[in-house]
Design a protein around this nucleic acid. Structure first.
Lengths: 208, 208
DNA sequence: AACAAAACTAAACAAGCGTTTAATTTAAAC
DNA sequence: GTTTAAATTAAACGCTTGTTTAGTTTTGTT
């Protein structure tokens, strides 16, 4: 599928992503975007109609292929627990290398204010939940996973742990001595991912 | 300890809390606050100096007694796992009944922009981590808890799960059929809290 | 080369922003 | 009851905001 945006629009979208993620939607002005993208301030309205619709376009631009990647994992020939681990890895990897947009989603699409845009986003989340659900049910049928877990609450545990870590980046950089960006990223890729996998595995398998 | 704020200031702080939580710091104007608090727009500058310092005052006003409550739990005569459960309950309860301020902390104190205010907030978090640490080490010495957990990552799992759930409130209201505010709150108090307790217990006790 | 559509620009628009000023009302102290 | 300080107000300040206008340049088509 080809992108519906031309080069200029993509240029604007990527600058907007950086600034929205950094300063928030309300904290970013069209003049900020125009300056950094080296375009005239009228171009945003010209190409996207309004600042609000620029945000919508940005969401569409960035969240269109996660669904497929998740569904692929479900189909693979793996043990349920390995699928779960792979799913967690995919989530962390994707969000971590697209921090900007997920930070924006996290920040801007929670308030009532943007409820209309929420619809498409909500559908995406429902689809993702379906994928997780089918993996866990598979594990339950095989007798590997316990049956009293609340499946919709597993996503909050996976994503919430990552987000809370990442949102408190300065705190953990200091606490864990992650002086460089590389050290920080590496900690996420290894320790944090493993912690989440370990947590979810324990939750799914442990019998009290 | 008596509060340093007079009635009028508290009135302003509480309105600011509602609006900052709802619309964000940048999304809220002093005129919004003044109108809802039924005061003159000059009163904010008069009492707090600036909008930025109003936010600082709000943090101070709301986060001053969590530390003690946590330290009390550590001291109690309970099994480590019960202390953990109690700590989780305290966190959820407190945050849930002070949603506004924690939402603001979550949103506004992550960007580099407000790094100076971050200092006091960071100290608070370090203290809270110390409390958690001493409980877990107690459990490890007793041979109840496994020793390869990364303690600083447990807080992100507890708080992150709750936040992610709460930040996606409209989604979960719809998904879990929580039509009224009461149903939603009750779900947090019972199912979500239990899910988190179950998760952390499994993580701390399960041997692979 | 002539034309039309698309891309782009500088300037202006009204509205809202945080903050300050200067004047007035209220409260407290003596 | 007079004086002094604190609380409160309406108005104005200069600045930034998102968007629109009207005009110019660039591009593509015949």
């Amino acid at each position: 599928m080809k992108s519906n945006f031309n080069d200029k629009q993509i240029q604007i979208l990527e600058v907007a992503e950086i600034l929205f993620a950094e300063k928030g939607f309300d904290g970013t002005s069209i003049r900020n975007i125009a300056k950094l993208a080296k375009i005239n301030i009228a171009m945003v309205s010209y190409y996207f109609g309004s600042k609000e619709r620029l945000l919508e376009s940005l969401i569409v631009y960035r969240t269109s292929d996660l669904k497929n990647q998740l569904e692929n994992i479900v189909q693979e020939e793996l043990e349920p627990i390995d699928k779960i681990n792979k799913l967690i890895e995919l989530y962390i990897n994707r969000i971590n290398s697209n921090r900007g947009i997920y930070r924006i989603l996290h920040f801007e699409f929670t308030s009532k204010k943007r409820e209309q845009n929420l619809q498409a986003f909500s559908e995406l989340k429902k689809g993702n939940l379906k994928s997780l659900e089918s993996i866990i049910e598979e594990g339950q049928k095989k007798g590997i996973f316990r049956k009293d877990v609340i499946i919709p609450l597993i996503t909050p545990t996976i994503l919430g742990t990552f987000f809370h870590f990442h949102m408190n980046k300065p705190f953990f950089e200091n606490l864990l001595n992650l002086k460089t960006e590389d050290l920080y990223n590496n900690y996420i890729k290894t320790n944090l991912t493993k912690h989440i996998q370990q947590t979810i595995k324990a939750l799914l398998i442990y019998e009290s």
